[in-house]
Structures are given as structure tokens and as C-alpha cells.
């Protein structure tokens, strides 16, 4: 039966080995320059696009998130990192309304939600990708990307069947916008393939395309580079940066590969055991003793990143 239903719980279970994020983390603290202004940082004056206030979430007795505060400014690329089980995916799921937080609330562009209304997210200008691929396997790449605009469709099924009213125009519009995004992300070659038949790295990119096609104000990326090769990762990082620059999208991303994150993000929040232990620029995070401690157990097993 064609019922590919992803159990919600599965989203949180990471399948990627912890050594992945040991790479790129400097083990010898570099000479720290306090107060470095990172390149690409946005002026503090802008009102934050996304604010989390006192978010708490637990599953049974397990505390997934405790008292998380976060503030993301428009146009920022904000990474959330942390060891396995630190609550990163839970946080994304709270922001996108998949999980309902036990405490605290989320503010999107100043509007406060106790629970983010999932079905309204697209209208609010929020798009996301999933840690485990969540493409529609039975649709072509183009249709997958065009479905990112489905929330805007105003024509009803009768108009679409008969090809009357606003439906032909909408159809043309969404397909041409999808084509533009495919071109932007260098996916035109696989335009008509079924999404389920693509290699993993490309599927991840198609998912990014589907999220980007609506030109969201806030883009949530749940491990966009997990399971990719090094070259695919740097390609994806440049696509994320290009998307931010072109659509002025604010990006919140979760990533295991600290090396990629350091180069990509404007600011980094570090979670450990459901708590935020740091929230600063890449350079500051790199030298934060608590962050190093959180990762140390993993890093010391794998001194120079061998075996990755």
C-alpha cells in the first residue's frame, strides 16, 4: 500500500555517526581574539524575524529541550549544532509546528504562537527541509518543486480538470517558477526524473529547491548536508549562501559537520542535553571551553579526524 508515512518520532533519531562532526573542530584552542566582528553579520538594529522564548519540551521523562532562548535576525544564517540527542531536530520541529512545546512560545515576525500552526506555515513565509528525505517519491522533480507553491493555488479541482478560470495561469506560473529554481540549483538535467530515483545528494538538493520555490522569509534546514560527500557538502553550502543572498531569506540550519557550519554561518547556537550552552559567532564558538567540552568525548577518540 502506498502509505509512506514517516513516524514523527523517527525524525528525531539521527542515523549519522558522531564522528562526522568531529571534523573541522579545532582541538587546540587558537589564540582567541575577543570581540572579532564576523564577516557578514547584520546590524543589531533590525528586529528579529524569529524569536524563541523559554521553549521547553519533554518526551515522557526525557527532557529534549529546556528553556531555550533564541533570536534570529533577518538575513542571517544561523546554525544550531550539538552532539547527537542534543535536541537540535526537536527545536526545528517546534519552530515548524510538528511538535508542540510544553512551555514557552515562538514569535514569527513579532506574532506570538504557543503552537506554530503547521498548515499555515507556508502562508507565513516559512519553509523547511527534513533530516530524513521527505520528497514525494511518486512525483517528478519538477512537480515536487512546483508543489512548494501548492499553498498559493486558488483554483479548484473543477477548474483544473476543465482547464478554465485561473488554473491555466497558475499552472504556467508555478511550473515556470519551479523551472527557475531548478536552474538556480543546477537541477535542470534531472527535471523530469521521478524524485525517488535520484541519488541521495540530489534528493537533498531537490528538497532545498522545493523549500526555496516559495521564496520563504525563513528557511529551516534540518541537516541539509547529512550523509553527503565533502564536495557535495561544500556545493550545498554555497547553494544555501547563494539562496540567502538572492532571496534575502533568513536561514536556520542544523548540521553535524562543524567545519561546514563554521564557514557558512553568521552565528552559531550550540545545544547540549537540550540546553543552549553557547550562542555566538563562529570564532567565539570555536574557542568556547564549554563547547569544546561538549564535543570532547567524541573528538578525543578521533584526534585528527581519521576514518571519516
Amino acid at each position: 500500500m502506498p502509505l509512506a508515512s514517516y513516524a514523527l518520532g523517527m525524525m528525531d533519531a539521527s542515523v549519522y555517526a558522531p564522528e562526522v562532526f568531529a571534523r573541522g573542530l579545532p582541538l587546540t584552542p587558537q589564540s582567541s581574539v575577543v570581540g572579532v566582528v564576523p564577516t557578514g553579520s547584520i546590524a543589531d538594529a533590525a528586529a528579529p524575524l524569529l524569536v524563541l522564548q523559554g521553549i521547553g519540551l519533554s518526551f515522557g521523562g526525557v527532557v529534549a529541550l529546556a528553556d531555550i532562548e533564541l533570536s534570529v535576525r533577518p538575513g542571517e544564517i544561523r546554525a544550531i549544532i550539538g552532539p547527537n540527542g542534543a535536541g537540535k531536530s526537536s527545536l526545528i520541529n517546534v519552530i515548524s509546528g510538528v511538535y508542540r512545546p510544553d512551555r514557552g512560545h515562538v514569535l514569527l515576525d513579532g506574532i506570538r504562537y504557543d503552537q506554530v500552526p503547521t498548515q499555515r506555515l507556508a502562508h507565513l513565509g516559512v519553509a523547511r527541509t527534513f533530516q530524513n528525505l521527505a520528497l514525494f517519491k511518486g512525483l517528478s522533480v519538477l512537480d515536487n518543486v512546483a508543489s512548494g507553491l501548492a499553498y498559493k493555488v486558488r483554483s479548484n479541482f473543477a477548474g483544473q480538470v476543465l482547464g478554465i478560470g485561473r488554473s491555466p495561469g497558475e499552472q504556467r506560473d508555478s511550473l515556470s517558477r519551479a523551472d527557475h529554481i531548478l536552474e538556480f540549483l543546477d537541477l535542470t538535467a534531472v527535471r523530469d526524473r521521478l524524485a525517488g530515483t535520484l541519488p541521495y545528494g540530489l534528493q537533498k538538493r531537490v528538497e532545498l529547491a522545493r523549500a526555496l520555490v516559495a521564496e520563504p522569509r525563513l528557511l529551516l534546514l534540518d541537516e541539509p548536508m547529512a550523509g553527503m560527500t565533502a564536495s557535495e557538502k561544500s556545493e550545498m553550502a554555497s547553494f544555501v549562501r547563494a539562496a540567502r543572498d538572492r532571496f534575502a531569506t533568513t536561514v536556520v540550519l542544523i548540521e553535524h559537520d562543524v567545519g561546514v557550519v563554521m564557514g557558512l554561518s553568521d552565528r552559531i547556537a550550540v545545544l547540549d542535553y537540550g540546553r543552549k550552552i553557547a550562542d555566538a559567532t563562529p570564532d567565539e564558538v570555536r574557542n568556547d571551553q564549554r563547547v569544546i567540552d561538549a564535543y570532547l568525548g567524541v573528538a578525543s577518540d578521533n584526534e585528527d579526524g581519521a576514518g571519516i
Binding site: P2, L3, A4, S5, Y6, L8, S96, G97, V98, T118, Q119, L121, A122, A127, R128, F130, A134, L135, F136, K137, G138, L139, D143, A146, S147, G148, A150, Y151, V153, S155, N156, F157, Q160, V161, S167, E170, Q171, S174, R210, A211, A214
Partner: peptide
Amino acid sequence: QTGRNFIAIRDNETAARII
């Protein structure tokens, strides 16, 4: 588009709701 929505819901209901 309606047919594509059907397939989207079949293949991944959570993702369909979020988009």
C-alpha cells in the same frame, strides 16, 4: 495540481502539510 496534491499526501503527509 489537485492530482499532485493527492500524490504528495500519499507519499509524505507531514511534508505535504508543511508546504
